[in-house]
Amino acid sequence: MATKALNFRMDEKEMVDLKKVAAVFNISVTDLVKDAIKEYVTKLKKDPFYRLTANVENATEAETEEILKELENMSDDDLSIVSVKHVSV
C-alpha cells in the first residue's frame, strides 16, 4: 500500500508527551501516531452509528426531491416521536 505524507498541528504540550512516550517505548513518533490513529479508527468503526451509516449511499437528486416533498406534506404530529426503543449492540 502506498503511503502519503500528512501534516497536522497539535498543542506543543501534547507533542512533548508524544515524544516522551515514543522515547520510552523506543518507537518513532510517526509509528506512535499511526498506531494510535489505527486503534481509534477501529474503535469508531465498531460504533453503531458508523455501522448504520457507513454503507448508505447518497440519494439521487430525484430521490431527494421525492423525500422532501413527502416531508413537506407531513404535519407536526406525523414528525413527532411516538415511541423509543433501546438496542444494545
Rank of each mutant, 00 (worst) to 15 (best):
V33D: 03
K19D: 06
A5R: 11
K34E: 11
K69S: 15
I81M: 11
N55F: 04
F8C: 01
V56S: 14
D11T: 06
E65N: 13
D76W: 07
F8D: 00
M1W: 00
K45T: 04
A59L: 14
E72V: 05
S28T: 05
P48C: 09
T42V: 13
N58Y: 13
A36Y: 08
A23S: 02
A59G: 15
K34W: 01
M74V: 00
I67S: 08
V41G: 11
Y40C: 07
V33W: 06
T64L: 07
A22P: 03
K13A: 08
A62Q: 11
A36P: 03
A2L: 12
M1V: 13
D78P: 00
D47Q: 04
V24D: 13
T64F: 02
M15H: 10
K69P: 01
M1S: 12
R51I: 15
K69V: 00
S28F: 08
Y40L: 09
K38N: 15
V82E: 14
N7M: 15
N26I: 03
D76Y: 08
L44D: 06
V29C: 07
L44C: 07
K19S: 13
A62S: 06
K19N: 04
K85P: 08
T64N: 13
I37Y: 00
E12W: 12
E61I: 12
E12H: 10
L52S: 02
L68F: 07
E57S: 14
K20M: 13
T30R: 11
A54T: 00
T3H: 00
S75I: 00
N73A: 12
K46T: 01
D47V: 05
K46D: 15
V29W: 01
D47G: 05
K43C: 12
V29E: 10
L32H: 04
L71E: 00
D78E: 05
K20F: 12
E57R: 15
A54R: 05
Y50K: 02
L52M: 11
D47R: 01
K4I: 06
E63A: 06
V29P: 01
H86K: 15
I37K: 04
K85T: 12
D47M: 09
I27L: 09
N58K: 15
Y50A: 02
E12Q: 02
L79Q: 05
K38Q: 14
K34L: 09
